[in-house]
């Protein structure tokens, strides 16, 4: 998500920046050296993939993959998302520095929730859980974005072609795309390198192979 500078009210920008600082502190705390390569590569993946813009209706949408990052990185996801967004804001003016907190937050919360959902459903088919968190993360991100916009200015809800309606309709294809890709990607990872998804997943995979 790339809310530009000047769109959010000062209060909303300040509160979201504060919350993001806390989330980042949680994300960085106790990070181990062996987690850094994964975090770094996924930050790069997120940076590149969310620069792809797909024109839908009057605006453009872009892939987010907060769900995928959340499942793989767990509590390190906000760190990767923050670094990716920071570079996008500084290099391409996608988003802005005052809204960096809001942009990080609206991806971090879905990412962290995706991690709990995915691992809370251990035993179900991987592709299903992946698709579920892929779709869920986009939906949750759009919901947070709507909350932020409305708390800045309630006028965003007015009219049939209101911003809110456009955002919801515009992101429906993305829900489908991310559900498919996240499901497929996690299935592939679970097959090729199950240790990335954590100990439980690796054990389950070893049992199946036997």
């Amino acid at each position: 998500m790339h809310i530009a500078d000047g769109v959010l009210s000062t209060q909303v920008a300040a509160v979201t920046s504060g919350v993001t600082a806390a989330v980042l502190a949680y994300s960085v705390k106790g990070i181990k050296e062996e987690e850094i390569p994964r975090t770094s590569l996924l930050a790069g993946f997120f940076f590149a993939v969310s620069l792809i813009s797909i024109p839908v209706g009057p605006s453009t949408i872009h892939p987010l993959f907060a769900g995928l990052l959340g499942v793989i990185l767990g509590r390190r996801a906000p760190l990767a998302l923050f670094v990716g967004l920071l570079l996008q804001a500084v290099l391409f003016q996608h988003g802005g520095l005052t809204t960096l907190g809001a942009n990080t937050l609206m991806l971090s919360i879905p990412a962290l929730l995706s991690h709990s959902i995915y691992h809370g459903m251990a035993g179900r088919q991987i592709i299903l859980r992946g698709a579920l968190v892929g779709g869920f993360s986009v939906t949750a991100t759009v919901l947070i974005l709507i909350v932020l916009l409305v708390s800045t200015d309630p006028a965003f809800t007015e009219g049939t072609f209101s911003v809110i309606n456009i955002l919801v309709v515009g992101h429906l294809p993305l829900v489908a795309i991310e559900a498919l890709v996240t499901g497929a990607a996690l299935k592939l990872i679970a097959k090729a390198k199950p240790e990335i998804l954590g100990v439980q997943e690796a054990k389950a995979s070893a049992n199946r192979a036997r």
């Binding site: 050296e33 390569p37 770094s40």
Partner: peptide, 26 residues
Amino acid sequence: ALPRGPTIALVLSGFGLIALVFHRRV
């Protein structure tokens, strides 16, 4: 404006380098 392709490539190689260095350390 910053050339899009080369900038993205540079950023990605930066992330790749960090990953490689820490992978080797571990």
